[in-house]
Structure formats: C-alpha cells, structure tokens
Amino acid sequence: MKTIKVKVFRKQDEIHRYDTYTVTCKKGQTILDLLFHIKENLDETLSFRAFCRSGICGSCALKVNGHPVLACRTQVKTILDKGPSNKLIIEPLDGFKIIKDLIVDIEGKQEVLKRFELWLEEKKPPKNKEFKVLREEAKKYGKETDCILCLTCCSVCETLKENTPFAGPFAFVRTYRFIVDSREKDEKKKERLETSINASIWSCVQCQKCVAFCPKEIAPAQDIQKIRKETIKAGYTETPGARKLSHYLNWVYATGQINRLYLPLDVYDNEKAVREFINFCKEHGVKIWEIPHLPDGFLALRDLIVRALIKDGDIENIDFKKIRKIDEKIEKLLKGDSKCE
C-alpha cells in the first residue's frame, strides 16, 4: 500500500489541462483499475476507453510516463519500480486527435481497415473437403493473428508523423497475415500487394519503435519487410526500395560490401550524386574507389550466400550479369589498375 499522486491529461471542448489525484495503490492494481478507482470515487467526469480488461479488445491503450501501454495489462507497481518513485502521468496516445481526456479519434484507422479489406477472402475449398491449415503454415502468421488493433504501433510510428498516405504498421501486420494464408484467393493477394504499394509500404523508416512497443509482441516492421519482398516477387521491381534491395544483394554477394558510390545511381539513376560524391572526395584528398575494401574470404562468402538463398530466399534475385561486371572491376583492382581503399 503506497500513496501516490497521479497526473491525468484532461481535455474538454478545446481546453487542455492536467488534473492530479492522490490515490492509494493496492497490490496487483493495474493502470485501468486506477482509472476506474478515480472515476468511481474521485472524479466521475474522467473519460477513458476500456472493455475486456484482459488485453484482448485493444481499447484501453494510452500513455503512462511517456510510453504507450495497455492500461489493463500494466501494473502500477511495475511502472513505479521502473522510474522515479511516486511519479505517474497518464496521457492519451500520441498521433491521434483527442476527443476527450484519454479518448482518441480512431475513425481514420477504421477507414484503413475498410480500405484494406482486412478479412479473409477464401478460395473454394477442395471438392468435398475442408481447408486444412497445417501447423507449419499457422506458425507463419500465428503472432499476427494476435493483433488487437490497439493502435499503439500507429501512436509511435515515425513514418506516420510525416507521411499521411502511409497506412500505419497495423494495416501491414494484418495484410501479411492474409497474404501467407493458403486459403486466400490468389487475386485477392495480388490486390493486397497493390494496396500496400499505394499505402506507401516503402516509406517505413524501420525505426523499430512499433516492434519495441507492441503489447502483443508482434513485430510490425518485420511484417512490412516481408510484404516488401512479396511486392518484388509480384513484379514491382522498379520501386526505389526494390532497387535498393537489389543493390544490397548484388554488391554484398560480389564484394561483401554495399557500394555507397553507386547506390544513388542504382536506386535513383542519379549520376549527378555520383559525380558530386567523387568531387567531394577529390576536394578533400580522399581516394575514390570503384570497389570498396574487399574483406578476407569474399569468394568463399559467395558459396555461403548461395546456400543460404537456396534454403530461404530466391537465388534468381542475384543479377549474375551485373556480378560479371563487378568481377571485371575486381580483376582490374587485383592487378593494380584501379584505386581502392
């Protein structure tokens, strides 16, 4: 039993303020219990969303001491043990319009759900049979089916802050879940990839905040990477992101390194950037290189990459014509005809 002061964000009409309540914490008490205690005993005007109290409905996501959590799954003691004792600040999620107090407007995200048609569109099952989802397949999207649409991922998303067409991590978690479901119609999968491209899937900055804060321990940033791969497989090979991945695969295969001199050219056809880079290096008396620093054993590395891609990946994504050209440069370098770091 400990008496603490809780600061709670309040908003009514257009006026914002923080109210402070003095409460006595009980063992096992959650942030949601605390909010109910305040509402029932101290201030009935306090508004917040909550329903299942079991971490299933996703409606009670909010911020405690600056970090997003599910109120029903977070014990007051855990928070107090982490930070300066007796300090508890409860605020609505970032990145949304606030309707009242701790309640944010999620209508825009409901629209995303509709636009993405995030439900299974089934093929016809095999004649006189039911669909069978084998354990191996279920493992691929088991975590993703845990998504409770709490929108924590959107509240911390660095891309959403700048880029409104970006749909938000949750939309891609759910998209991935259906793309890898063997019951879904093939044409629907294609449609989902097109929707993902249109919803700026390549704009994700991969900051990993959604991975850090997802209360269900899903890794949305990784699902985004998996969908990106699927878009390339489906033929969207000319997006900057697809060309960047191709650069990484080819150059790491050939030399063990990416090549920052040619990256702007390979991704954006930007010859000017290459020239500027060269000039900048010259100005500062730094050697220009065509092949970056070759690590020891770079040829054996190629075998390893091939073996790995045979197990998981697509060996066809290595552009062997391009590798021949890089090899010519390496040959020159090894003969001493070219500059290298």
């Binding site: 990416i258 690590p295 390893l304």
Partner: peptide, 26 residues
C-alpha cells in the same frame, strides 16, 4: 576483423532473414 562483411543493413532481411542471420553469424 578482416573477414567481417556488411551486416546487410536490415535490408538483406527483406530478401531473407536466414541470409541475414548467417551473414552475421559469420
């Protein structure tokens, strides 16, 4: 450590998580 190579920059992971793991195990 002269044998170390590019970690894949979290980009190779888009092609294959296994490839990224093995490169970094190496």
């Amino acid at each position: 450590v002269r044998k170390t190579i590019c970690c894949g920059g979290n980009v190779i992971d888009e092609e294959s998580r296994f490839l990224s793991t093995i490169i970094n195990a190496r």
